[in-house]
Amino acid sequence: MCCSGFLKMIMFVFNGVIFLAGAAILGVGVWVKVNSDSFLGILNGVDGAPSGLSELVYVSYVLIGVGVVLVIIGFLGCCGAVKESRCMLLTFFSIVLVIFLIEVAGAVVLLVFQDVAQELLGELEDEVRKGIEVNYGKDEGLTSLWNATMEQFKCCGYKNYTDFDGSPFNEEHGVYPPTCCNASITTGVCNKNGASRSMIDGCFDKLLQLIEDNAVVVAAVALGIAALEIAAMVVSMVLYNNIGNKA
């Protein structure tokens, strides 16, 4: 009885951690989805964009899906231990085993995702910069999308302020978007002098940094959860056998 009670407590603690970690991954997935939509929207609208680019959008959905599943199995494991249900424990073990294998594969993909993303986004540079030169200030939808992206990421153009040279906005007003100038350096409108002195990073570099930071964090969290899941599977099977012996 003492051993069984200890195992139930261990099972409850393990699955409580898995439940909370699943909620954390779900939160990261939602955050990545919200913060990546604007820039990816621009890239997906570029003529000649590589077909693989659309797959970047799915990363956030994968994280959200994994988070939801972890929350469910964490709840299932806790209930199976408390209620001493062999059916629930066996179901829990099976689901966790499948999720464990998926997470290991996903962690490996995330670790190499940065290089893949950089290659895909690098192929788009000429097309995106041409789109800015031709349509920024003329196409209301593209202009609004770029403004929202630059404001959100605190960046300027695809590579830097020179992307806006010759654009309808630059030709008409003789200035650059406000985000291309550092407020501590330039006051008033953002002219060429202020933009060149500020040298705000382009959105390409900012997006790569976002991908890099989140890939490392998510991969580390996933591997940590995988270790907990191995322990939880072992405990669940021991508890499963003990319940069977009691019956």
Rank of each mutant, 00 (worst) to 15 (best):
L53H: 04
L53D: 05
L53M: 08
L53F: 09
L53I: 12
S54L: 11
S54F: 07
S54A: 15
S54W: 04
E55H: 06
E55C: 07
E55V: 15
E55T: 15
L56N: 05
L56A: 06
L56H: 08
V57A: 12
V57H: 09
V57I: 12
V57K: 10
Y58F: 13
Y58Q: 12
Y58G: 13
V59M: 06
V59S: 06
V62F: 15
V62E: 10
L63I: 13
G65F: 00
V66C: 08
V66T: 14
V66M: 13
G67R: 04
V68W: 03
V68F: 05
V68N: 08
V69P: 07
V69G: 01
V69A: 14
L70Y: 11
V71I: 15
V71N: 07
I72W: 01
I72E: 02
I72Q: 06
I73V: 15
I73C: 07
I73R: 11
G74H: 01
G74V: 05
F75L: 14
F75E: 00
F75Y: 07
L76E: 03
L76D: 04
G77E: 00
G77A: 03
G77L: 01
G77F: 00
G77I: 10
G77D: 00
C78I: 08
C78D: 06
C79A: 10
C79N: 05
G80L: 01
V82F: 12
V82Q: 12
K83H: 10
K83Y: 12
K83G: 06
E84G: 10
S85M: 05
S85H: 03
S85Q: 02
R86H: 01
R86N: 12
R86I: 09
C87W: 06
C87P: 06
C87G: 06
L89E: 03
L90Q: 09
L90K: 14
T91D: 01
T91R: 09
T91N: 10
F92L: 01
F92S: 05
F93I: 11
I95R: 02
I95G: 11
V96L: 10
V96C: 14
V96N: 01
V96S: 07
V96Y: 01
L97S: 14
L97G: 15
L97F: 12
V98K: 04
I99V: 15
I99A: 12
F100G: 05
F100R: 00
L101K: 05
L101M: 11
I102T: 14
E103M: 09
E103S: 02
V104R: 08
A105I: 13
A105K: 07
A105L: 03
G106S: 13
G106K: 02
A107L: 05
A107P: 14
V108D: 00
V109W: 12
L110V: 06
L110W: 00
L110H: 08
L111Q: 11
L111N: 14
V112Y: 12
V112P: 04
